[in-house]
Simulated assay, not measured.
Amino acid sequence: MKLLLAPALAGIVLGTLPVSSTKVVVSGAVNEPKALSLDKPIPLREAIHAAGGLRPDADAMRIAVQFREGHQSVYNATLPGPLCLIRPGDRVDVPVRDEGKYVHVSGAVGSPGYVEFAGGLNVREALSRAGGMITDASVVKVTRNAGDAGPEIYVLNLDDDSDGGDFLVQPADRIEVPHARSMAASDRELLTIIVVGLLILLLVK
């Protein structure tokens, strides 16, 4: 038996015929899960924004897109730049973040937020993945959840001759980098005295 195509359909692959749906379903850890009505492709970030944006517990590094053709891709929305275009018939699913897969880095770093955990990850590498330190501070604090015993806090020295940066982190650890300290009151007073003294010398001359 032969399948004959009308001349108008010649050359069309049946598996790629347009999908009739005009909806894009955005579900999971977004503030307003919904089916969006689309008449043209839109960027993935725009689709998420239209669904109320990401919830605080969203795993922005593992946003799954099920394309209407049947294949699936995972996107990291914490990276800059465009991700992909969403078309009618696609599905977007934002998973809830599993704290056990990440280390949280905050404070004076280039890109505060979550860093994906991998075996053998140390403090120095975690800071590098978070954009590096943007302060001249040499001490960081690591807070670790020890269950019923309460949090364990480690204060690490990252000076070049110290091995504090080699400290191995664990999943769900929180690394905090202090910002450069503001000038203390005593420092300001000393600076004021020096400036006033210089002005007096200039006036005397």
Rank of each mutant, 00 (worst) to 15 (best):
147 G>T: 04
147 G>P: 04
62 R>W: 00
99 E>P: 09
51 A>E: 04
167 F>W: 04
116 E>P: 01
131 G>A: 06
116 E>D: 09
115 V>K: 03
115 V>G: 00
118 A>R: 13
124 R>G: 04
164 G>P: 03
17 L>T: 11
91 R>C: 02
13 V>P: 02
59 D>P: 02
136 D>W: 10
79 L>M: 15
37 S>T: 15
5 L>T: 12
72 Q>G: 07
121 L>A: 04
62 R>G: 00
37 S>C: 07
47 A>I: 01
29 A>E: 10
180 A>T: 12
65 V>M: 04
93 D>Q: 15
103 V>C: 02
169 V>Y: 01
182 S>I: 08
6 A>H: 14
136 D>V: 11
184 A>S: 15
183 M>F: 08
59 D>Y: 00
157 N>E: 07
165 G>K: 01
121 L>T: 05
93 D>H: 14
107 G>C: 01
93 D>F: 12
111 S>P: 02
54 L>R: 05
180 A>F: 12
39 D>N: 14
94 V>Y: 00
25 V>L: 14
88 P>Y: 04
159 D>C: 02
27 S>C: 08
46 E>S: 15
101 K>Q: 15
2 K>A: 12
173 D>S: 04
153 I>F: 03
164 G>C: 00
158 L>H: 03
12 I>K: 11
201 L>V: 11
172 A>S: 15
139 V>E: 13
157 N>T: 11
78 T>W: 04
182 S>V: 10
190 L>D: 10
124 R>C: 03
85 L>Q: 15
5 L>N: 13
18 P>Y: 08
151 P>K: 10
158 L>N: 06
155 V>D: 07
13 V>N: 11
7 P>Q: 11
201 L>T: 11
156 L>S: 07
194 I>Y: 06
132 G>A: 06
